[in-house]
Design a binder for these strands. Structure first.
Lengths: 221, 221
DNA sequence: TTGTCAACTGTCAGCGACTGACACTAATGT
DNA sequence: ACATTAGTGTCAGTCGCTGACAGTTGACAA
């Protein structure tokens, strides 16, 4: 994650061992988090399940929180990669929207070798429903927004400090994304498809919602 | 804050004493936070400055964090009050925008008896530049967004669970608000007027930013 | 005024997240 | 086979925060 771009599978025994304990810690952590709740599981419980010392946990993860976001981290950089790949002809909104949908389509290929999609979805719901994690999540989204704004500005040949539109557009887009994510988290369905459907429906409402008069037609869904 | 609407100045000695220590704690906390930084000041430092026990601090504030947001809390409920007061004729966006501007106009009258506007602005900048506080701030904004969405839906006679437009509109609006808040936090000017000017400029760009083609005209500022 | 009651405060012991220092063990390259 | 180096465990300690208990001090009635 920090040293190489792809790493092409570590070769040495040492490397493999490291990856194994990291994976084991991550699995134990996410398992406990999603079953007992984040606050109610101590890092001592996690390390006991893997039989390493607490110190070792904190060598792999800077904090208990970081473990909760390990997969999210992968998904986010995958999204950014998709966004960079969008054709220049697409308008900002179109590009962002398509990047999100494409990223979700290829979710499995990206994370499956670390964790199942199902566990990731459960983790995501746990993040949304745990106050302290929700806070961290929103800050991470804010960082992501910043990167996306720079990217979009680049596509359009603009400077984010000169022209407010990139930041404004990204803020509006991400705002809607977060709302649909939260609503999905509170709902019953917990698969990727229902998340995608809800998100598309909400993004479609951005234009209509900004139009002044709502009292004429009825909304979607 | 929890018991009465206005409280009309506490009468007993006990009440006055309580308010005094709470104010003293708050002042000491915000002073230390804004000068040394939030992470670098311990609760022990705060209580030493006021000469009370640590336990007392935690009876007034549920956490160190809560002290940092005490003023923000007042400002937010003031904003909600302003929003409720907007005439029904105003469109959702108009109402939110005017409520924000009115709230800032009367900022002094609301907080001045607790803390100077200048200290509050310094505190706000500190929040924006301290990662853990920024996270908490964003979560609080998210809560506020929820309340605003309900309020807006009510004005328009809609149900937030039926029609996505209230949530979408509020998300877009708050997204832009947060962006301008962050940029202001990073900039040089730290008075309310510059914050208001920046915010207005950014809100004005919401419509243009959503229009597909940016390569024709140049942005504001 | 006095005494009772309730509210407020301090002390203490303890938990959980996290860190630095140091010693120990085991993979790696020669 | 050996020195090097990376990874791990142990220990002690900081900081935020909490429960339990005891002491103090305003409030209110007799």
């Amino acid at each position: 994650m920090t040293d190489g771009q792809r790493a092409a599978y570590p070769t040495g025994l040492r490397e493999r061992k490291k990856r194994r304990t990291r994976d084991a810690l991550l699995h134990a952590a996410l398992d406990l988090f999603t079953t007992q709740g984040y606050e109610r599981t101590t890092v001592d419980e996690i390390v006991d399940a893997v039989e390493v010392s607490q110190r070792t946990f904190f060598r792999y993860f800077a904090s208990k929180e970081e473990a909760a976001f390990a997969i999210q981290e992968m998904v986010e950089s995958h999204f950014l990669a998709q966004l960079r790949r969008r054709p220049a002809a697409e308008a900002p909104f179109e590009a962002m929207r398509n990047a999100v949908l494409c990223a979700w389509n290829s979710l499995g290929e990206v994370i499956e070798e670390t964790v199942t999609v199902e566990l990731h979805m459960r983790t995501y719901r746990m993040i949304e429903s745990t106050p302290s994690l929700l806070a961290a999540h929103l800050r991470r989204c804010s960082d992501l927004e910043n990167q996306v704004a720079l990217l979009i500005a680049g596509r359009e040949g603009l400077d984010v400090d000169e022209d407010p539109r990139p930041r404004v557009a990204v803020a509006a887009f991400c705002g809607v994304m977060r709302v649909s994510g939260q609503l999905w988290g509170r709902g019953r369905d917990s698969d990727v498809d229902s998340l995608r459907a809800l998100t598309e429906a909400y993004l479609d409402q951005l234009g209509p919602a900004l139009a002044g008069d709502w009292r004429t037609g009825r909304g979607a869904q």
